[in-house]
Design a protein around this nucleic acid. Structure first.
Lengths: 140, 140
DNA sequence: CTACCTCCTCCAGCGGCTAGAGGAGCAGGG
DNA sequence: CCCTGCTCCTCTAGCCGCTGGAGGAGGTAG
């Protein structure tokens, strides 16, 4: 049996603040963990993985609902992939767009850091991220 | 002289909703545009670029303050790069971490879409994004 | 037994939007 | 020239995703 930690430990392990963990439980993003006799939450390794996943996904700009879908996908082994396929594909497309635009931004920001003693007269950061040739969105 | 558009046109051109554009102006993320005689906002090409930039940056998970910094960087040609260097480097590191984790996630999600008629029994999406070996953060 | 730390619940507030009310500007057709 | 209808204006209230504090109970160490 693996050791379980209280909410403070889970917070340190995941980098998510204590009230936020409780909030995730409240909105059903995280299953209600077991409790001690004294009513304290106990998190096992699975819970911690899930918390780390949520943290990184949020940092990458996925919204709670998307994370919920991804977690469902990963959390139901018996579910046929066919059902999950469209969800996954949707997210794949979104991930690709994110990577493409981050790479373009990276290029420009790095260029800025290279010109140590010059001015940023020719910075094109806005143009780079403002360009939407890689966009798949309908709305613009 | 280039044509300017009203807020509705700016919204369609940038993919940002009208109230959000007004909100960005209110918090000083977007400069107050010129107005018509009838008090309507008029946006030129520069404003639209800025709006597109903000939209993409927000989608990529940058917070408003980071965007403000990046815009300042790109918007002051006379400013020596030395001043801006640290800001740029900080963001560069963040961008790199985002790209690394997005790539890992991409890999896993794609693997999920490949197994058409199988189950997702061996999905490792959570582990992939839960892993924090690329993290530079102090807090965990 | 006391001190102190972590945990509990409840609730209020903040950042970043988003939507609606109520009213004025403006463009096109009759 | 006026009416219809669309877009715009400001103001205010609400939603999502947290974040922090009050007030109190559990648990552990000296």
């Amino acid at each position: 049996m693996q050791r379980a930690v209280a909410i403070g430990g889970a917070s340190r392990a995941s980098g998510i603040k204590i009230p936020t963990i409780r909030y995730y439980e409240q909105i059903g993003l995280l299953p209600s963990p077991s409790r001690t006799e004294g009513n304290r939450r106990l998190y096992d390794e699975d819970d911690l993985s899930r918390l780390r996943f949520i943290r990184h996904a949020r940092e990458l700009g996925f919204e709670v609902d998307a994370i919920r879908q991804l977690l469902d996908l990963a959390g139901h082994p018996s579910r046929p992939c066919r059902d999950a396929d469209e969800i996954a594909r949707t997210h794949l497309a979104e991930i690709d767009r994110k990577i493409a635009r981050l790479s373009a931004l990276r290029e420009e920001v790095e260029r800025m850091t290279r010109c140590r003693n010059e001015t940023v007269a020719d910075c094109r950061v806005i143009e780079v991220l403002g360009d939407h040739c890689e966009c798949i969105h309908d709305q613009h």
